[in-house]
Nucleic acid binder design. Structure first.
Lengths: 324, 324
DNA sequence: GTGAAAGCGCTAACAG
DNA sequence: CTGTTAGCGCTTTCAC
C-alpha cells in the first residue's frame, strides 16, 4: 500500500480511502491510485485489515459430518445468505467428537472469527463460555438449548403426531427407535418426544425397543439387525436421522425383511437421498435451507448489535412416502 | 499478551516463547506465564500472528456445488488430511459461475490463504496468474490442465472402455450423452473421450445425441426428455455426472421409460446416492477421497517448498450395478 | 534464560 | 479533499 501511494504520488491514507470508499476522493486522485494499483497488481492484505479493525470476514460452521447431505445443504445455504455481506463460511468437521468440537471452538476464538454456527454433539453449555466471553456471536442449531446461546431448533410435535397417526392407521403398535448415542448432550430429545407422543396414541416405546449408535449408516444397519433379533419385534421403526434409516434399509435388504410390509421405517431430516432410495423414505422433514437461513439471520442480528437471546423454531413436517 | 506479561512479571517475548515453544523457558517462568494466561483467559490472536509471520492456517476449497455429495466428500477428506497440520478448510461455493470463481480467487489472495484447492468450471488459465503471482499454492482438480498449476485429474480410459464393453455386450449401439454446458473451460473432456473410445468399439456418438446442461438434477431430467423425443432414440446414455443421471432417472419414471430395459444409464463419480437409487446406478467411479488426499499431498509439498509442477492421475473405475 | 524494540500492512482519528 | 501518525497484537532479531 505504501508502494501504491508512492507510485500514485499520494499518501497511504488516500489509497486506503480509495479502496474503502469511506471518504470522498477527487476523481483524478482516484484514477492515479487505481492506475498504480493495477500497475503493481496490488492486493489489499485482509489480515492486516482484520488486525486493525478487529473484524474478520470469516464465519465458522462447525458440524458433526459435512458429508451428511443435511449439513452439506446447511453449508450451502449459509454461504449463500452470508456472501452478500462479504462473509465466508469455514466448514469444520467434528466427526461428533467432543475433543474436536472443543478444539474448533477454541480455534474460532483465536482466529477472532466474525461468528460461529454450530451443531454441537457432545459439547456442554459451559464449553461456550470462552468464545462467548470473547464476544464472538454464536448460533447453535440443535434439538436442545445451550443456555444463553441463540438457538435454531425444530418444532416437530405435529410432524411426529402425523407420523404416529399414519403408523396407527396402518395397524401398527410396536414402535421402536434407532436413536443416537446415549452420551450426546441433552440425551436424545427426538426419542423423548417420540415416546411422549406415542403414549398419547396408546402405543408405547419400551426401553428394549430402543437401540443406540452414532448417526451413521453402519450404525443404522447394526441397530436394525439388533431390533430384528428381538423376541418382541417392532412393526414400525423411527430413526434418529435419514442416514441411520438408510443403514437400516441396507440391513433389511440383507435380511430379506420387507419394508414396509414387515416393518415400517421413518427417517428424520429429509436429506436429499430420502426420495431416491426404494422404497422412498417416509420421513420427518427438517429443512436444512430453513435452518441455514434462520441461523444466518440470527448471526446478522448479533453482528448488528442485538444483545438479547433469541430462539427460532423451524417447523418440521411429515413427509409420507413409501416406507410406512 | 502484554497483559499476560505484566501479570506474570515477564516480557511479552517470553509469553510468546512459552506459547510457541521456540526457545527454552525456565520452568518457574513458564508456570507463572501459564497461570497468568489462565487467570486472564487469554487467547492468542491468530490474526496478529498471521500478519507478523505472513502465514495463514486457512486453505480455501472452491467448488461449483458443496451440496453435491462428491464435493462434500472432497471437503471432508481435505479437512481430515489437513487438520493434522493445523490447517483449516474454507469451503466456497461458486455455483459454477465464472464471476464467483474469480471473486473467490481474489478473496483467497487478499486473505493470504495458505493454499487453494479448486475445481474450476468457467475459469481460464490466466485467471490464476494473480494468485500464483502472490505466491499462494494452488491445486486444481479438473479433467483438463490449467497450465503450470498442480493438477489432480482422472485417468478414466479403462473405466470408460469397460463401460462400453458392457453396453456393447448388452447389444446396444446407439450411444448418447447428457453432457455439461458448452462454455465450461476445456469443453467437455468426458464427452470427447467417450466419443473417441466409442469409435473404437464401432459405435458412434453423433452430435444429435449429445445434449447439454448444467451439472444439475433438473438439467439431467430435461436432457433425458430431449433425448427421448429424438426420432433416432439412444439405447444407452452416459451422463456428465451422477447428479445428472439422477435427473435422467426422474424423467424416465415420469415418462414410463424403463431403465435399463428401454435404455441403459451410466453415471459418473459414484456419488454416495448412486447405490441408493433404484435401479442402482452403474457409474464411472471417481473417488472423492482419493482426489482429496492427492490434493492435500500436492498442497503440502508446495508448502514445503516444491517448485516444480506436478500432475497426479487418479484412476477411475467402472462400477457395474443395475442401470445397464 | 530473558528483555527491548522494530515492524508486519492496514485504518481512523486528527489536523490542515 | 488530503496527509501525518499512532497503534492493532504478535514474532523475532539483537543484546545481555
Amino acid at each position: 500500500m505504501a508502494d501504491v501511494a508512492r507510485v500514485a504520488g499520494v499518501s497511504s491514507a488516500t489509497v486506503s480511502y480509495v479502496l474503502s470508499g469511506k471518504r470522498p476522493v477527487a476523481p483524478e486522485t482516484r484514477a492515479a491510485v487505481e492506475a498504480a494499483i493495477a500497475d503493481l497488481s496490488f492486493t489489499i492484505n485482509a489480515t492486516a485489515r482484520s488486525l486493525r479493525t478487529g473484524r474478520s470476514s470469516l464465519v465458522a460452521l462447525i458440524v458433526p459430518d459435512i458429508a451428511n447431505p443435511f449439513f452439506a445443504q446447511l453449508a450451502a445455504t449459509l454461504d449463500e445468505e452470508l456472501r452478500g455481506l462479504g462473509l465466508h463460511v469455514v466448514v469444520c468437521n467434528t466427526r461428533a467428537r467432543r475433543a474436536e468440537e472443543q478444539a474448533l471452538l477454541a480455534e474460532a476464538t483465536q482466529q477472532r472469527f466474525a461468528g460461529v454456527v454450530i451443531t454441537p454433539f457432545r459439547l456442554k453449555p459451559n464449553d461456550f463460555e470462552p468464545i462467548v466471553g470473547a464476544g464472538i456471536p454464536v448460533v447453535v442449531s440443535a434439538d436442545v438449548s445451550f443456555g444463553p446461546i441463540d438457538l435454531v431448533t425444530p418444532d416437530a410435535g405435529n410432524a411426529i403426531r402425523r407420523a404416529l397417526e399414519e403408523v396407527a392407521a396402518a395397524g401398527r403398535r410396536r414402535i421402536a427407535m434407532i436413536a443416537g448415542p446415549r452420551d450426546a448432550t441433552g440425551g436424545d430429545p427426538r426419542l423423548e418426544q417420540l415416546r411422549a407422543l406415542a403414549l398419547q396414541f396408546g402405543m408405547s416405546l419400551p426401553r428394549e425397543l430402543v437401540v443406540r449408535g452414532e448417526h451413521a449408516r453402519q450404525a443404522g444397519a447394526a441397530g436394525f439387525g439388533e431390533l430384528m433379533s428381538r423376541r418382541y419385534r417392532p412393526d414400525a421403526i423411527f430413526c434418529g436421522n435419514d442416514v441411520i434409516a438408510i443403514g437400516a434399509m441396507d440391513k433389511a435388504n440383507e435380511l430379506g425383511v420387507n419394508i414396509p410390509a414387515d416393518v415400517a421405517l421413518i427417517g428424520h431430516d429429509d436429506a436429499s437421498f430420502a426420495s431416491l432410495v426404494r422404497p422412498q423414505l417416509t420421513t420427518i422433514r427438517y429443512p436444512a435451507a430453513g435452518v441455514g437461513r434462520a441461523a444466518a439471520q440470527l448471526l446478522i442480528e448479533r453482528l448488528n448489535g442485538r444483545q438479547v437471546h433469541k430462539t427460532v423454531h423451524i417447523k418440521a413436517e411429515f413427509v409420507a412416502r413409501s416406507s410406512v
